[in-house]
Design a binder for these strands. Structure first.
Lengths: 106, 106
DNA sequence: TGCATACTTGGTCAAATTACCAAATAACTG
DNA sequence: CAGTTATTTGGTAATTTGACCAAGTATGCA
């Protein structure tokens, strides 16, 4: 594996890692319905404003969302909507896992 | 959000988190080509045997892979091949991010 | 200008992650 | 059975993560 391959692998993993947190995944799901300001999330997510802001920063650095300041508010939006297509597959993984656990009970 | 929704969100995030490590992502990519024993990975990945084993355990717990012992070797295989479809989208995210960085230079 | 609102940033701390080594287990081999 | 190979498990140390609080910045409004 070349150094370039390694870098690409690392970059891809970073994106997935950014998605790998309940709060951030929730944010992505919400953003798939449309843009949202930080304050909008602060209400829904039961966390500190600063925590919400930091999670959004992680998503931004991963390249998953864009932000735009309008007035006093900062609006975030999903940059690449295709990430939502992951969800079906993830659910398939969970189902397959559940099925395997059920197998153990037989 | 109900407690059940929360649990589902958490479970999904766990799957993504499992994918969010360069070594594990590499393993998944390799497994998409066919099953592989732990020793096969130990060679390719420049890490300790125990480290490799632990990464595979993480993937297994996430429901992403299955293992089967045959003789002295343990073979792992991808349980849900659809995860490979993520890659195109992830690459799109990276490209979009690169494009945004390029914008800054204008 | 001065104060409130909306965020972000920096600091701190506990918990989780990851890597390695050493030791334990399991299955073949002579 | 003794020794070797393949893999997992347990322990430990370094690093990263995630949550909160407090302080800083920026915008809008009286």
């Amino acid at each position: 594996m070349t150094r370039k391959d390694q870098a690409l692998l690392h970059a891809k993993a970073q994106v997935l890692k950014a998605l790998g947190h309940p709060t951030r995944l929730f944010m992505i799901q919400e953003l798939s319905k449309g843009e949202r300001c930080v304050c909008g999330f602060a209400e829904q997510v039961g966390a500190d404003f600063s925590t919400v802001s930091k999670h959004l920063t992680v998503l931004k650095h991963a390249g998953l969302v864009d932000d735009e300041k309008r007035g006093q508010q900062v609006f975030y939006r999903l940059r690449v909507p295709c990430v939502m297509q992951f969800m079906n597959c993830i659910e398939a993984v969970l189902k397959s896992k559940a099925a395997a656990s059920a197998d153990l009970l037989r």
